[in-house]
Amino acid sequence: MTELNMLEAINESLHAEMARDERVVVLGEDVGRNGGVFRATEGLYEKFGERRVYDSPLSEGVIAGATVGLAIAGLVPVAEMQFLGFAYQAMHQIAGQVARLRYRTQGRFDPAITIRAPFGGGVRTPELHSDSLEGQLANIAGLKVVAPATAADAKGLLASAIRDPDPVMFLEPLRGYRGIRDEVPEGEHLVPLGSARTARPGDDLVIIAWSHQVEMACRVSDRLAGEGLSIRVLDLRSLVPLDVAAIAEAVDACGRVVVSEEAVQTGGFGGEIVATVVEESFWSLEAPVVRVSGYDVPYPVGMLEDRYIPDEDRIAAAVRRVLEVA
């Protein structure tokens, strides 16, 4: 085990996968000589050369679109969207092409494509850098959507994503790049896609979350433990495929649920979780499920974002509200 931040874990995973499989190629804006604007691809260009680590022209559309051709050629592209909000300019390729390649060719081609992108707020970015699009992405059949909350999972899930024969959107929390730091297994470390993780044990209530909201939920759990409350935190790790069994197990054990996400509330993935809870575990519920989320507005500018992102106080208030139901 080594303690790494999330960025170091991602970088380590990219190095390992490129060394393991020479079909892996990395492409994106500033990923080569500069090592990525956050340094996620640091050292890859020097180690693997310009044929496998490509500084692309500034076009998210062609980065995503080219991955389709690279995959058809038998390569394993790992593309970077510099920020997930910029992927709006690639959505016609991601949703319309990348996600459907296997289906529309009825399995002739393996779209072994990974698209990494930082997302989420808290670092005072300009417009369109922090949007949480996971709900939109999860609504695109054929895509897998992965959102790690720890450095260890970032390493293990990224390796699984790159090895997966299906296209994976790999969403990395901006705030977690340097803000999240934990023990990461050395050498090969694989975390399967579609398996949730219990980030905190507990049986009074479960907070279901993913990405940076897991960190917030854990802080709430730790804080409320001081009041004798036992708050479980379920880290989904992957939204598609979804670990339905783990959700059911947690809800059956706790009976009370809060779902926390950073995205716009309407149409967000939190709604999908609530629906899943109701379908799977309605008779275990002791109180209505409550969502904590962003608001139904575009991701705001810096002076407003602390109000937008669900923080410990909002999550804790939701937890208390659900626990108060007799």
Binding site: G61, G69, A73
Partner: peptide, 20 residues
Amino acid sequence: ISLATQLPHAVGLAWGMTLQ
């Protein structure tokens, strides 16, 4: 059917062929 979306695929494929 999504017009012109095949052109980035063609470039990616051609590029992938040269890489191999």
